[in-house]
Nucleic acid binder design. Structure first.
Length: 873
RNA sequence: GGGGAAUUAGCUCAGUUGGCUAGAGCGUUUGGCUGGCAGCCAAGAGGUCAUCGGUUCGAGCCCGAUAUUCUCCA
């Protein structure tokens, strides 16, 4: 069975059991402060489990792309070294939200595995939760009974809380689970040791393939468990492992999910897979990481230096590093695998096909950046070895600096050191690392208190802000949050006119008022689907009912910018082409910022065209067309623009300004008619990373101010230039002229020095074969220096002391022919220091030439006199 | 969000306790030599040492701010 068929069979099976099949959520998580990437199939249903969102379909199944780089069983550094760890993987899952429970979950799992996939029943073992004293929980006899009806009790194992009790986090929904394991060893091995003994022992061929979680409790922050009124099923089956089992392979990497990349890599590197351990590891690493990185980029997470972007960068760089070291690639290579990936997975994940070029380009760019980083690191490394030759051990601090500051991988440092028979002080390295981690952690801790529930029976905050700017609301719950020594409160209301930050539009500000108490709301945000109103302080007595009113001025200005963003998005596609995809957006009351995929600078001409189109649309005063509750299919038929990497619900909202021109899926708020925007003006355009440009723009009075300021600046410049007809040419001429004059002046100074030379040479006197010149001048330090060097060129065996006063500051220059410094032991630096005492200064230089400056011009003659004394006739 | 670094010629980079008339290789220009490959020799041009301010007799170097870029951690 091919992997694509295996995936399809799963979805078909659960569809036949009345499950609604949903698309995989994006890999990149938005609106959840605790999570950067989707790391489990249940992520997109978290709000349903938490009770923040209503249940639309009680039965759901899907395949979900997931990414894990850390956690109890996942360390990035291990991926590729074994046969079954991955960064990105697919999780097949079926869900019940308050619908069926343990019986059906167990029976269907068995039916699918043994009747559809026809797995060998003798190879299957299951585990059941064995109870836990600390939590006061009995063993899960219910699950045990259901299993006993279909599988021999010998094959059922009871396991501890560690393995068989699932929790979402420190608090929240949780419950016992039941795992299905499969023994893929050969008959001989199975006879030699019963598979039962290897379950949960990290054996590569006795693996868990499916976890059935029975959510029946919620854990409170005091650690207690509270039974849930509605019980849920949450299952997850590792797709890659399932394929390994069904394709009778010994390793996930031997399945048709990974082999195409390995084959291609093997061809590119001209190294057969299986020929050497480390090259095999490298190929597995790259095959795995290629998938993770490509999917993340397609979902909008670009390699970068913080948050999710940094995770992606680390994964990609790890792939490059393995290719560099073990497959000897010296040019970007990972991006060449993207077409293979698209050919393989494009069918199941259309976003890959649509974004293929972009993904390829971003990866290629990151690859060449990293290869450059490696090159500078190698140079630093070599410099260090030369500077400390003979030591044999590299200082851990330096190794850390190489890693921390120059991004040079520590294992590469170790490898290169080993090749030279050096070692690396790893203790010192770890020390530096720990200090770094400590700093970061202490800077970013957030403490959240328990929710104080004021009212029950709550499903979803109703948003009324599209139509109203104020509303009567009641408080549902609130909590206190501590972050970086500051505390604030989060409030949840039954309904609200406050728009919560999302889709780039900032959250509303405003007030909650009840009789004489007034609470200021400084921001509104979303945590998953939960709308939280943020207040810096709360009154002692908290009323239950309020009038909620938003700051309307801020909202209006924000709407101007949001609508302008839509108009510009459409204009960009028109002017630049259809490859323009939104990659990020920020809309607040001051300006708008829009990131989009495009591979070259937007020219001044194009900017002008874009502004023209947008301003024309503003002047048309187009009325907003809003469709609040559309089926996704309907929206698509209207050609509404949707974003990759954005999770849309079953019902979507569509905003159009002239359906022929701009139609977008959007939850944000907009102007009633475009004329309100007044004026649109692009303020800046630039690159933000490979293949992504950023435009910032302003509207309304802010745009007016911007234009006026520019005009004033230009006026001021022109009037300084005496209002010429062609001010640019005049300015250029002025700059050229300035450069020319500067050089001419330089020449003059040198010339002046040269002219003084004969006169000075005449004043020279000779003592013991040394030609002495001591003279007071009226020049700058620069000229005196030139002069000294001119003299040196004309006369041998020279000893020169020149004194000068420039800008009412005295200075000295001492020059001695090099042969004399050596033969007679004179040192210009020491001499000048001595002489400088008379002018209250100090100085120094090389033995043959030194300068000094001072504060007291009156002492200059004294200094020169002393110089003369040294060589008195 | 918190650290560490970098910014010097068209490019890649040196510049060691502040004393520098700021260097190298590549590239470039000119002249000469030369039968191949990155040909050889000689001479030259090319720098407000990122920007602004400070310390100092003196700053490419020290201190502060800004900008841009790189990088690690969360």
């Amino acid at each position: 069975m091919k992997s694509s068929q295996i995936r399809k069979a799963f979805l078909d099976f659960f569809a036949s059991k009345n499950h609604h099949i949903v698309a995989s959520a994006p890999l990149v998580v938005k609106n959840d402060p605790t999570l950067m990437f989707t790391n489990a199939g249940m992520n997109q249903f978290k709000d349903i489990f938490l009770g923040n969102s209503p249940v639309q379909f009680p039965r759901i199944a899907n395949t979900q792309k997931c990414l894990r780089v850390s956690g109890k069983h996942n360390d990035l550094e291990e991926v590729g070294h074994d046969t079954y760890h991955h960064t990105m993987f697919e999780m097949l899952g079926n869900w019940s939200f308050g619908n069926y429970f343990k019986k059906e979950a167990i029976e269907w799992a068995w039916e699918l595995l043994t009747e559809v996939y026809r797995l060998d029943k003798d190879r299957i073992f299951v585990t059941v939760f064995g109870g836990d004293q600390g939590d006061g929980l009995e063993q899960d006899t219910e699950a045990f009974e259901y299993w006993k009806a279909i599988i021999h009790p010998d094959r059922i194992l009871f396991s501890s809380k560690k393995d068989n009790f699932w929790e979402m986090g420190d608090t929240g929904p949780c419950g016992p689970c039941s795992e299905i394991h499969i023994d893929l060893r050969s008959i001989e091995q199975r006879l030699a040791q019963p598979g039962k003994e290897l379950v949960n022992q990290d054996h590569p061929l006795v693996v868990e393939i499916w976890n059935l979680v029975f959510i029946q409790f919620t854990r409170l922050s005091n650690g207690q468990l509270k039974p849930l009124p509605d019980k849920h099923i949450d299952t997850g089956m590792g797709f890659e492992r399932l394929c390994m089992a069904l394709q009778a392979k010994q390793s996930n990497y031997d399945t048709d999910i990974f082999q195409p990349y390995i084959a291609k890599l093997s061809e590119m590197a001209n190294i057969a897979y299986g020929s050497a351990n480390m090259s095999d590891v490298a190929m597995r690493v790259i095959a795995d990481h290629l998938r993770a990185v490509s999917f993340a980029i397609a979902d909008g997470e670009i390699p970068g230096n913080n948050k999710g972007g940094y995770v992606i960068r680390r994964i990609l760089r790890r792939a490059i590093r393995y290719g560099y070291t073990f497959l000897k690639f010296r040019e970007p290579f990972v991006h060449q695998l993207v077409p293979v990936l698209v050919a393989n997975m494009g069918n199941a994940f259309p976003e890959l096909v649509a974004q293929q070029d972009f993904v390829k380009r971003v990866i290629a760019e990151e690859e060449s950046t990293f290869l450059r980083t490696l090159a500078t690191g190698i140079q630093k490394f070599e410099n260090y070895l030369t500077a400390h030759s003979g030591r044999g051990t590299m200082d851990g601090g330096f190794a850390f600096e190489l890693y921390d500051t120059y991004g040079f991988p520590i294992d590469l440092t170790q490898l290169m050191a080993k090749e030279r028979c050096w070692s690396v002080d790893m203790e010192g390295f770890e020390l530096g690392m720990e200090a770094q981690k400590l700093r970061s952690r202490s800077a970013a801790s957030v403490e959240t208190g328990d929710w104080v529930e004021v009212q029950q029976a709550f499903s979803d905050t109703r948003f009324v802000g599209y139509d109203a700017h104020e509303a009567e609301v009641s408080l549902i719950k609130y909590r206190k949050v501590l972050s970086k020594g500051k505390s604030y409160y989060q409030l949840v209301l039954d309904c609200t006119p406050f728009y919560a930050e999302s889709g780039g539009q900032v959250g509303d500000r405003g007030w909650l008022q009840a009789n004489d108490t007034k609470i200021e709301i400084v921001d509104t945000q979303k945590e998953n689907n939960l709308v939280v109103h943020i207040a810096e302080s709360l009154p002692e007595e908290l009323p239950l009912k309020f009038v909620a009113r938003i700051d309307q001025v801020k909202r209006n200005l924000t709407e101007n910018n949001h609508t302008a963003t839509h108009l510009m998005h459409a204009a960009l596609a028109k002017v630049l082409g259809s490859h323009v995809q939104q990659k990020g957006s920020l809309v607040n009351e001051e300006r708008l910022r829009f990131d989009f995929s495009h591979f070259s600078k937007v020219t001044a001409d194009e900017i002008e065209q874009i502004e023209q189109i947008v301003n024309a649309k503003i002047r048309e005063n187009i009325h907003q067309e809003e469709h609040r509750e559309l089926e996704m299919e309907q929206a698509k038929s209207m050609n509404a623009v949707a974003l990759f990497g954005e999770k849309y619900g079953e019902k979507v909202r569509v905003i159009a300004f002239d359906p022929q021109y701009s139609t977008e899926l959007c939850g944000g708020t907009h102007v009633g008619a475009t004329g309100q925007i007044g004026l649109f003006k692009i303020v800046s355009e630039g690159a933000i990373s490979a293949g992504i440009r950023r435009i910032e723009a302003v509207t309304g009075s802010a745009a007016e101010e911007f234009v006026n300021k520019k005009a004033k600046e230009l006026e001021a410049l022109k009037s300084l230039l005496k209002n010429p007809t062609n001010s640019v040419a005049v300015l250029q001429q002025l700059l050229d002229q300035n450069e020319m004059l500067r050089k001419a002046l330089d020449q003059m100074e040198k010339e002046k020095a040269r002219l003084m030379v004969p006169e000075l040479l005449e004043k020279a006197w000779e003592v013991n074969g040394i030609n002495c010149i001591v003279q007071r001048l009226n020049t700058s330090a620069e000229t005196a220096k030139d002069l000294a060097f001119e003299l040196k060129a004309r006369m041998d065996n020279l000893f020169v002391v020149l004194g000068y006063v420039h800008d009412s500051k005295p200075g000295l220059a001492v020059l001695i022919s090099e042969n004399i410094t050596k033969e007679r032991g004179f040192n210009a630096s020491e001499i000048v220091k001595n002489l400088a005492k008379h002018i209250q200064g100090g100085g120094g230089g090389q033995p043959f030439f030194a300068t000094a400056g001072g504060k007291n011009p009156d002492g200059l003659d004294k200094a020169l006199a002393e110089a003369k004394k040294m060589f008195a006739v």
